[in-house]
Amino acid sequence: MALLIVVAALVVGGVQAAAGEVPAAGRLPGAVILLAATAALHWRRRRPVVVLTVTASAAVAYYLLGYPLGPEPVPFVVALYATAEAGRRSIAVSAVPLAVGLVLAADVAAGRAPEGEDLVAVAAVLVAAVGFGELARSRREQRHVQAERAAAQERLRIARDLHDTLAHQLTAISVQAGAALRKRDSRPELAYPALETVREVAGDALREIRSVLGAIRADPAAGGNACEAVPALAARAGLAVTMTVSGEAVALPPDVNAATYRIAQEALSNVGRHAGVTEAEVRLAYLPRHIEIEVLDRGGSGPGGGERGPGHGITGMRERVTALGGRFSAGPRPDGGFRVWAKLPR
């Protein structure tokens, strides 16, 4: 929306500046044509080629109708950038000589003498738009690669956690079981506490393994919606969660969807483990180019309360968000409790 406002201001300002002695009534139709092309930019990410065609047609119509020259290429340049950014490289590259040719043909049709310097300037601007669009697409792909690496590192962390859990718990079970066997005949009264310890340790190990495996099975990276998975996360954490969703819900890229899910998962798990409360709030906002997720609780301060240090969970969330080019913060709230917030590009 901000971009559309800027383009609209450039278009209107350009029409006014280039109008000279042309009365307002004569400038208005030209401004309407270019503002309609600007409005079409709203769909530049979903239908880049269609928007490119619409803006090109508007520029040619404006030019042929003899309105003051200057602002007519602006919507088309933005649409050309969006086409290249969307990965439609061949169409974007082909549009450059085609656009220059249309300008030349329009000059001839309008009885104007084509100026070589103007054509070179137009071509340079269009080539720059394609180049910047390709650069943006390349950076986005790099972020995706980094996100995949972060996911691989997280899988390694999960495997390491499972190993550490099993190694520790099975060792304790083996030691206590051995002690119970040795004492079952000579000191049976001492064997029973050892067996009780075995039962408790085995139960703890099973709960930790189920928690990890449940998180893996519920991973929405293979499909699904992170927003829809939050209630199940809350149930596993034993929490009553109030969820608020704002904006137009759209399908998220798999890496962004997985990151959103992981943030909700880790933040709600932290509330269940540390906050000492049974309620939390999740806010999800679909913005034009980003998605925001915020997890809030009102746990008290002190041991087991809302003041959680920068443990591995928060570090992992921060690394995942940073790898996707987003922003992350986590810390105590001024009025008590804890806040986890992330903003991810989509």
Rank of each mutant, 00 (worst) to 15 (best):
A36Q: 00
I314P: 01
Y286E: 08
P220Q: 10
G316P: 03
E148A: 10
A17R: 11
D255P: 05
E281V: 14
L3F: 04
V198Q: 04
F328L: 05
E266Q: 11
E200R: 15
V245E: 12
V103R: 12
V49N: 04
A234G: 13
D161Y: 06
V282Y: 15
R160Q: 15
D118H: 09
A37L: 05
G302S: 06
A129M: 08
L41I: 10
R199T: 08
A285D: 13
G336Q: 11
V130R: 03
A150V: 02
V100I: 11
R27D: 01
G331F: 03
Q169N: 12
A36Y: 00
A110Y: 00
P23M: 04
A285I: 10
G66D: 03
G276M: 11
V32D: 00
L190A: 14
L156F: 11
V130F: 03
G306A: 10
M243Q: 15
A205F: 05
G111N: 10
R210D: 12
G299W: 15
G247H: 07
L213W: 11
K183S: 14
R346W: 03
R207N: 13
R339N: 08
D118F: 11
W341Y: 14
A82G: 01
G325A: 05
L195E: 07
A84D: 02
P29C: 00
A9S: 13
P73E: 03
A124L: 13
A2Y: 10
R308Q: 08
R217W: 13
G224V: 06
R46I: 00
D297I: 11
G300E: 14
M317N: 06
K343Y: 00
R44S: 14
P253K: 07
G311L: 03
D118Q: 08
S90E: 12
E115M: 08
A285N: 09
